[in-house]
Design a protein around this nucleic acid. Structure first.
Length: 308
DNA sequence: CGCCTTTGACCAGCGC
DNA sequence: GCGCTGGTCAAAGGCG
């Protein structure tokens, strides 16, 4: 891990950084700023399509509950990348080209199908109880699930995304004055994890990495803001015109092929989805395969046209 | 009282 | 084998 590529695409100019452009096949959809509508229109998007994280006090109904400091915060997603099938992408290496880590990909394949994608919704207890605390199974590699990384320009580290998270760890990051925080979805049957770190070279940006897929419609959407029925749709929270109020939006994604159809269905990750994931550890997914792989969060945020 | 964060310890993987 | 680093655990304490 010592030789992880610590280059920060944010400040290193990730828009031209080859390690990021290589991620086109994995869902990287460009460098953008939701405030720049011209860029969005180039992608066939409008503001409603961006996965803008919401501020922490979403349940305030956009009222004066929002701290003054928060009011002054500018939050915008500037880049997203996603990938599957790679492992040992730890720490700063989330910025590495997953295709370049093929040496570990073979090791990445789930040796035990109990882990990985199908475990996400298997209803099993979380790994913590399964491994019996500090008595861990030796020789059992960590299985990486599909990950999506956001680079977000924000003064807030932990950006709300509609799910409830429990922090389970924090580590100092090499070559960075900012710690990395580890979060787990509070749903006991959901193994989705989230990693949040601030860019060492550009403190104004936050890198949020999601791993796995939620197997539930909502695990307590921000303090009961909306009903369970509603959150079966992707959760995109966008600021209202005054940037202090937030509204829940159902994204109206471009209707391209069957993707548009599937969008209208509540997204429940089945065990089959897990099987898909396993197969994709074995070899790089084709475009068609990715269409089934890129479910969950990625599907929530990336319109089909961008995944082609 | 339940949920959450904090934090030190522990474990696994990797390079040398 | 050793050291470094990322990732995770779990006890303790805080908060509403």
């Amino acid at each position: 891990m010592d030789d992880h590529n610590t280059a920060d695409p944010v400040t290193a100019g990730f828009s031209t950084d080859p390690t990021w452009t290589l991620h086109d096949d994995y869902g990287f959809f460009g460098v953008t700023d939701y405030r720049d509508s011209s860029i969005l229109s180039d992608f066939g998007w409008n503001n409603n399509h961006l996965p803008l994280p919401e501020f922490d006090r979403i349940d305030s109904g956009g009222s004066s509950d929002v701290p003054e400091e928060t009011n002054s915060t500018t939050t915008s997603v500037v880049a997203v990348q996603s990938w599957t099938g790679s492992t040992e992408i730890a720490g700063d290496s989330i910025l590495l080209n997953p295709l370049a880590s093929s040496s570990s990909n073979s090791d990445d394949r789930p040796e035990s199908s109990a882990a990985s994608g199908d475990a996400v919704c298997s209803g099993k207890p979380p790994p913590s109880s399964e491994t019996g605390g500090k008595i861990k199974k030796k020789g059992l590699k960590r299985i990486r699930q599909q990950r999506v990384a956001f680079i977000t320009k924000s003064e807030i580290d932990h950006l709300e995304d509609g799910y409830r998270w429990r922090k389970y760890g924090q580590k100092a990051v090499k070559n960075s004055p900012f710690p990395r925080s580890y979060y787990r979805c509070t749903n006991s049957k959901c193994t989705v994890k989230k990693r949040v770190e601030r860019s060492s070279t550009d403190p104004t940006t936050v890198i949020t990495t999601y791993e796995g897929q939620h197997c539930h419609h909502t695990v307590g959407f921000p303090r009961g803001l909306i009903s369970h029925h509603e959150v079966s749709y992707p959760r995109l929270l966008m600021p209202s015109s005054n940037s202090q109020q937030f509204s829940y939006l159902r994204p109206q994604l471009p209707q391209v092929g069957d993707r548009g159809v599937s969008r209208s269905q509540p997204q429940v990750v089945s065990s089959e989805a897990g099987d898909h994931q396993i197969s994709n550890y074995e070899q790089p997914p084709t475009s068609l395969q990715r269409s089934s792989v890129d479910q969950g969060l990625l599907e929530d945020i990336v319109p089909p046209i961008m995944r082609n």
